[in-house]
Every structure is written in structure tokens, then in C-alpha cells.
């Protein structure tokens, strides 16, 4: 398989400027959030790579870096052999069409003042389809493809349900015929029964259009279902990557083990009190621990140098 997207030692730091008043009254200082803290990862053409992690792990930031909606602080990202950070504005405009994103919140991801025709139409324009009749034909075809009635073409977002909006959001991304789609918690805001519809739609579209997904979610169950490989992120770092079945059934990293053990399962009747529970909470990304970010909470901490923390294949 051919690597479509490669991330090498990617960092993203956000600088929080202390206000003048805060500085003067409370002695506050500028601080740096290490949202992504040295991530190397490969997404292969045609696969679905699941990216899981808890809040504050930096997974959403990583998704935005991957398609250059945000700029990396350090490190490089290569798409299809081309370094994204060095792409010219003209090249980038071309690339934008190949790199798309679907968001979590179906309420704020669609412009409330635009009709479905305008929303999907603006994506078609980005692809160079300007003729209104051609646009109309394509939008109707896309609506049908997403299981929505064609008359929705005139609808505004507030007239649609959460699931319907999410379908429109997917159509907009699809209308430019992308190759890589970053799906950032695409089903987390939806009801269980609707969730399954959207997951199924995403799977069908991937098959039909030969897409590659970077599927970001905190829902470990959905990620298992949809992903070929899964990467586990904790506090800005990837702690484990592997084929999904292997990773879920033979997790190696203590954090992955703890995370998977926390998932409620139908098989675990009355386990609520009996399961191993990971204590404490995630440290602040303002000052992440050196080495393995998990070591302050780790039940099997080893006494090795923090510098020796890197991804390797377990023997």
C-alpha cells in the first residue's frame, strides 16, 4: 500500500498571551499549550485510520494540521509525496479539493443563512462547476446518493434534523471529489440509531469513491467498527498504533489497555464496580510530562530514561 499522508515529528503549540491586566495584577505569564507534541504517523491510500483519544489529547488539532487548516509549529507533513507546508498558494488551492473535512457539530458546520443548493453549490464551484443547471443536476444526484429527497435542495439547515444536516455536510465534502477526508467526530452528536446510518453512509461512500479516511473520535466502539488501523493518542502523542482487531484485542500500551477496559460492554453485566479503573485525570497540556506522557498515571511504570520513549513494534 502506498502512503498518502505522512506526518513526521509534527508539533503544534498554541501560545496563550497573558493580558496586560493579568500580568500586572496577578503576575501571569505567556503560556504554551503543547496540543500536538511530536507525532509521526502514516495514512495509507484507501484505508481508514482511526484516531482515538480523550478530550485534550490533541486529536482534533492533528486532524486540522493534516489538511493544513492550521499550520504546524514544527515537523513536516507530506501528502502524496508533496510537502504541504511548502506548497505554493496555487498548489494549495488545487490540493484543497483533495483534502476535505467533516465536522462533529451538524449545527455549526452549515451556514444557517444558506440553502442546501448554495452550500453544496459553493463546493461545486470550488471544483470549477459554475453552470447553475449543471450544479442543480449534480446536487440532486448527490442528495439521492446520501439518501435524501431531492426537494431538500431548497431547504435551510434549521429545517433539517441532525442526521440530515450531517448528510449535507458529507455531501459538501464529497462534491469536490476528495481523496483524503478527515472526519472529526462525525457521529458523536447524533443519536445511536442515526449514528449507524451515517457510519454506513461513510462506508459506502468510501467504497464507491475510493476515499481514504482519517476518522477521529472518542467513541472507541465506532472507531473499531470503521477503522482498518487505529492510533491511540494521549496528551499530544501517539502511544500505540496497530491493526484495529489486534490493537483492540491485544493492546500493548498500558494506556490503551486502561482505555479499552473502561468501555462499557453488554458482556460485562455488573462490572460497573469490579473493573480495573484508571485513576486520576489527564495532566495539563501546558506542561506535559517528559517522555511517555502517561507515566505519572501508569500502573506498570518502568524506570527508563524519558528520552527512550518512541514508537516501536513489540517483540
Amino acid at each position: 500500500m502506498k502512503p498518502l499522508l505522512e506526518l513526521q515529528e509534527v508539533h503544534k503549540h498554541f501560545h496563550l498571551r497573558a493580558s496586560l491586566l493579568g500580568r500586572w495584577l496577578a503576575g501571569q505569564r505567556d503560556r504554551t499549550v503543547h496540543a500536538v507534541n511530536g507525532v509521526s504517523l502514516v495514512v495509507y491510500e484507501g484505508e481508514t485510520l482511526g484516531l482515538v483519544g480523550e478530550s485534550g489529547s490533541g486529536k482534533s488539532t492533528l486532524g486540522r494540521l493534516a489538511i493544513r487548516l492550521q499550520e504546524v509549529t514544527q515537523g513536516l507533513i507530506r501528502y502524496n509525496g508533496l510537502e504541504l507546508g511548502k506548497a505554493s498558494p496555487a498548489q494549495m488551492r488545487q490540493l484543497r479539493r483533495e483534502l476535505q473535512i467533516i465536522f462533529q457539530n451538524p449545527y455549526s458546520s452549515l451556514n444557517p443563512r444558506k440553502s442546501v443548493r448554495q452550500i453544496v453549490g459553493s463546493a461545486l464551484e470550488a471544483r470549477g462547476v459554475r453552470d447553475p443547471r449543471q450544479q442543480e443536476l449534480e446536487i440532486r444526484a448527490l442528495l439521492q446518493r446520501a439518501g435524501l429527497p431531492e426537494r431538500f435542495i431548497e431547504a435551510y439547515p434549521h429545517q433539517l434534523s441532525g442526521g440530515q444536516r450531517q448528510r449535507i455536510s458529507i455531501l459538501r465534502a464529497l462534491a469536490v471529489r476528495p481523496r483524503l477526508v478527515v472526519a472529526d467526530e462525525p457521529v458523536s452528536a447524533l443519536d445511536v440509531s442515526v449514528q449507524a446510518q451515517i457510519v454506513q453512509l461513510l462506508e459506502e461512500l468510501k467504497r464507491d469513491f475510493g476515499l481514504t479516511y482519517l476518522f477521529i473520535s472518542h467513541d472507541l466502539r465506532v472507531v473499531y467498527h470503521i477503522s482498518d488501523r487505529v492510533a491511540v493518542m494521549y496528551l499530544g502523542k501517539i502511544v500505540e498504533v496497530g491493526r484495529s482487531q489486534e490493537l483492540y484485542h491485544r493492546p500493548q500500551h498500558p494506556y490503551t489497555q486502561a482505555l479499552l477496559a473502561s468501555i462499557p460492554r453488554l458482556e460485562n453485566r455488573y462490572l460497573a464496580g469490579g473493573r480495573p479503573v484508571l485513576e486520576g485525570s489527564v495532566p495539563s497540556p501546558l506542561n506535559p510530562p517528559k517522555g511517555c506522557p502517561f507515566h505519572p498515571r501508569c500502573p506498570v511504570k518502568l524506570s527508563i530514561s524519558p528520552l527512550d520513549f518512541y514508537l516501536h513494534s513489540p517483540q
Partner: peptide, 13 residues
Amino acid sequence: TREYVEAARALGH
């Protein structure tokens, strides 16, 4: 900060 703006950027507008 709303995602529809990000989506428009992702489309290359």
C-alpha cells in the same frame, strides 16, 4: 470559530 467557516477554507475559497 464556527465550523462552516473552516469548511469554506477547506474548500479553498
